[in-house]
Amino acid sequence: MTAIEAIMKRRSVRKFTDEPVTKETVMQLIDAAAAAPSAMNLRPVRFILMDKHDMAKLAETIDQKQPFEQGQWAIAVCADTRGYTGGTGWLEDASAALENILIAATSLGLGSLWYGVYRRAAKEPQVRAALNLPEGAECTGIAVIGHPAEKKKEHDKVREEFIFESRWCKYKI
């Protein structure tokens, strides 16, 4: 599968099968995440790998339980902002790493979900506690990984009215 095909096929999956995913495969996803760009190459991104047991414990504390109960692995994408000198660049770094996980998972025939955490009042405190995040560490989101139990249509091409040339236009010319 080409990179473009993986990007176009990647969809949020919330239902997974019981088919196992090897730790070796999940480590490939983390390697892909670590290859994401980093502002000034400061590399603040850290990964917390969760197995089924860890995911079940997290599911006890959050509202959106199903993906964590069904997925095979979860990867929390965090950033260590202690002493970080790149402003808010860590947020882009962690987001790029998380997106790399999702695209890489699709390229391997896996399903994935971006469970957003950062600045989400209904999620952040529970996740911080479950992951034992120290002050100065931030969790951008968690990628839930598994074999998809649902099929989704791949993305369409961008709508023409969303493309502007040279400057922002209220109406397409």
Rank of each mutant, 00 (worst) to 15 (best):
S95Y: 11
E19F: 06
T2A: 11
K15A: 15
P37G: 13
F164P: 02
A56G: 09
M50W: 11
C139E: 01
L58V: 04
L98Y: 13
R11P: 09
R14K: 10
R128L: 03
P134G: 06
L29V: 02
T85V: 07
A76Q: 03
L108I: 02
K152V: 11
R46H: 08
K52P: 03
Y115S: 01
P148W: 00
A121M: 07
W73F: 14
F68V: 01
A39S: 11
H155N: 04
M50Q: 05
K52R: 13
M8S: 07
G89I: 01
G83F: 03
K65D: 00
I30E: 00
F164K: 12
I7N: 06
M27I: 06
A130Y: 11
Y115A: 00
P37A: 08
K52T: 02
H147Y: 04
E99V: 04
H147R: 11
A96N: 07
I142W: 12
L98V: 03
T61M: 09
P44D: 04
L102F: 06
A97D: 01
I30R: 03
T81K: 10
M1P: 12
I48V: 15
G86K: 03
F16E: 05
T81C: 11
H147N: 11
P20Y: 04
E154R: 13
G116C: 08
D31N: 05
A97E: 00
A97Y: 12
E135W: 10
E19G: 10
C139L: 09
E165N: 15
G116E: 06
I30M: 06
V158R: 07
R128C: 00
L58W: 12
K172I: 03
A94N: 00
A56D: 01
F164H: 15
A137Q: 14
L98D: 02
P67H: 08
A35Q: 07
E124D: 00
V45R: 08
Y171H: 13
D80H: 14
A137V: 15
Q72V: 05
G89V: 04
A97S: 14
T25I: 06
A130K: 08
I4N: 14
V77N: 02
K15R: 13
E5G: 13
F68Q: 02
